[in-house]
Design a protein around this nucleic acid. Structure first.
Length: 549
DNA sequence: GCATGATGCTT
DNA sequence: GCGGAGCATCATGCT
């Protein structure tokens, strides 16, 4: 196979406004070419030759940011899939870096310094040598399969998700915004009345002065720059003055209006009535995907008002529905797998209520006698284990003393001894190697693990134990996404993957495809990676995201 | 216009 | 002094 480095010049924002303005090509060493926009706009022989090259099976296509390239070329009618994405390779080699721009990679790996004026052809000439260096490193670190079989194909899946977009109902959003706005106006007046003055409620500084100086409320917590006024503080002050509850409600409604109602409205495409999120593959240190503009991974779900926001996301057409498939307790199942703890494995094999089972174990009572309060505490302990437990954090979360929290943790680790072993071994591995890994050998460096600073070291230890769990769960859902995408394509289905929210996938599905799509998604998600425990996926179907939450 | 802190939303 | 991983908004202070 002949290798070809490709650098696209583009203008505009992805995916709708993205325009191709030039192509740099380099087949080997010093030979590089630049195809300007003018040549791409006319039906020249050059243009068809270049476009043919971009889909040539016999050419190994090397690109920096293949997802972006796929989106840019889709507008030109090209179904572009690259063979080696240097951005993804660099991300796997060190997922904690702030940026993965081509210029830095060329400097770091090849020692060449590019001046700003270099054209796309010249930049393309570095892609082949860069690929050699990064590819060799991936091979040495046993990440070739993660790269070739997971991340590379996933970038195609994500590109198509970004281009698909998600349909919203702007009228519904507009009404919610107005409703929030009216309530906020009323609250603003009431807060000014109770404060005896007007001030900017959105300013933590001014709010702190009103609460703790003018109204003399007790100071619960301080921040670097003064009083803390966060929700945790306000909850404690609830009984002290009627203004506190009003402020809590104001904060909540302001969040709903500014971030969700108005924020979302500003991103709706007026022609398609869709939002086109960016699913970023090289941001998180653990291997998760992130989402921006809009962030579709933090749409409210916990409150009734929040759920109304989800109600604005709808299926694309009248005869389509939204389908969600979400992994049940994937991180605890990954922990059961990684630790090999017999009792934890048994709980999942038997299909038990895992939090109730934990409560039974930790508090030493039969499962039938577990109250909802004890179950909630056990649930917090389970989260604590996943996030890298600290007695302080658990105590904070449950409103108990650190001593009690320490007892809960000890009890848990005594009941699940191999989880204790697993945590100890993981931290030791981090200290020895300087990094931890996931089931697919994804790697994260933990530089502070041997720090003499207790805080830094403790944080690093929590990161060391959390990353293999969160990262392995990310590996699993990524594999599932690639499988599902390929199966949809093979079967010529119209169903489209729209959103990934860490342990959940959302699809737009024509009604008449629902049953076949559901069975594909179920088997691909549940058999994505064989673990020592079963993977269980729950499904919901509805016309809006609210209905499937 | 840009960076940072405080805050709050998700999994 | 602090639970893991993110992103968006507003206020504020700086260039």
């Amino acid at each position: 196979k002949k290798a070809l480095g490709i650098v696209l010049e583009t203008e505009g924002k992805s995916p709708l406004g993205l325009r191709l303005t030039g192509i740099g090509l380099s087949a080997s060493g010093d030979n590089s070419y630049f195809v300007p926009e003018k040549a791409l706009r006319e039906n020249s022989g050059l243009k068809s030759a270049v476009f043919a090259l971009l889909t040539d099976r016999e050419t190994e296509k090397i690109v920096h940011d293949g997802k972006h390239a796929r989106i840019a070329l889709a507008r030109e009618g090209i179904d572009f899939v690259c063979d080696f994405d240097t951005m993804l390779a660099a991300y796997l080699l060190d997922p904690s870096k702030a940026r993965y721009d081509l210029e830095s990679l060329i400097f770091e790996n090849l020692g060449a310094e590019l001046r700003g004026s270099e054209d796309a052809g010249r930049r393309a000439s570095f892609l082949l040598p860069l690929k050699e260096v990064l590819g060799e490193k991936l091979k040495n670190q046993e990440m070739e399969r993660l790269f070739k079989d997971v991340e590379m194909p996933l970038s195609t899946v994500l590109a198509d998700m970004e281009m698909a977009g998600i349909r919203v109902d702007p009228d519904k959003l507009q009404k919610l915004s107005a409703e929030f706005g009216e309530k906020l106006e009323r609250l603003t007046g009431e807060i000014y009345e109770l404060a005896g003055m007007e001030f900017n409620i959105n300013s933590p500084k001014q709010l702190g002065e009103v609460l703790f100086e003018k109204l003399s409320l007790p100071v619960v917590k301080k921040k670097k720059s003064g009083y803390s006024t966060d929700a945790e503080v306000l909850e404690k002050l609830k009984g002290a003055h009627p203004i506190v509850e009003k402020i809590l409600e104001y904060r909540f409604l302001m969040k709903m209006k500014s971030t969700y109602a108005d924020g979302l409205l500003s991103l709706v495409d007026r022609d398609t009535l869709k939002v086109y999120s960016n699913f970023n593959q090289t941001i998180t240190a653990t291997g998760r995907i992130s989402s921006t503009e809009p962030n579709l991974q933090n749409i409210p779900v916990k409150t009734d008002i929040g759920k109304k926001i989800r109600g604005v996301f709808v299926a694309e057409k009248p005869d389509h529905v939204l389908l969600s498939g979400d992994y049940s307790q994937i991180e605890l199942r990954v922990l059961a797998h990684l630790s090999g703890d017999e009792k934890l494995i048994e709980a999942f094999v038997k299909g038990e209520d895992i939090h109730a089972r934990t409560a039974s174990e930790v508090f030493g009572i039969p499962q039938e006698k577990v109250t909802s309060q004890l179950r909630d505490r056990a649930k917090a302990v389970n989260f604590g284990i996943i996030y890298g437990i600290s007695d302080y954090g658990l105590a904070q979360n449950l409103g108990i003393t650190t001593g009690e929290a320490r007892e809960y943790i000890e009890s848990y680790l005594n009941r699940y001894p191999k989880v204790r072993d697993y945590i100890r071994e993981t931290i030791n591995r981090a200290k020895l190697n300087g990094y931890v890994t996931t089931i697919f050998n994804r790697r994260r460096y933990i530089p502070d693990i041997n720090s003499r600073n207790y805080n830094l070291r403790s944080f690093a230890e929590r990161v060391a134990m959390n990353t293999p769990i969160q990262g392995s769960a990310a590996d699993i859902i990524k594999v599932a996404m690639v499988k599902i995408y390929n199966h949809f394509k093979e079967m010529g289905l119209k169903a489209k993957m729209l959103i990934q929210v860490h342990d959940e996938l959302i699809f737009d599905v024509p009604q008449d495809e629902l049953e076949v799509v559901k069975s594909i998604v179920k088997s691909d998600m549940e058999t994505a990676v064989p673990l020592k425990v079963p993977l269980v996926v729950d499904f919901k179907v509805g016309k809006s995201w609210e209905e499937i939450s």
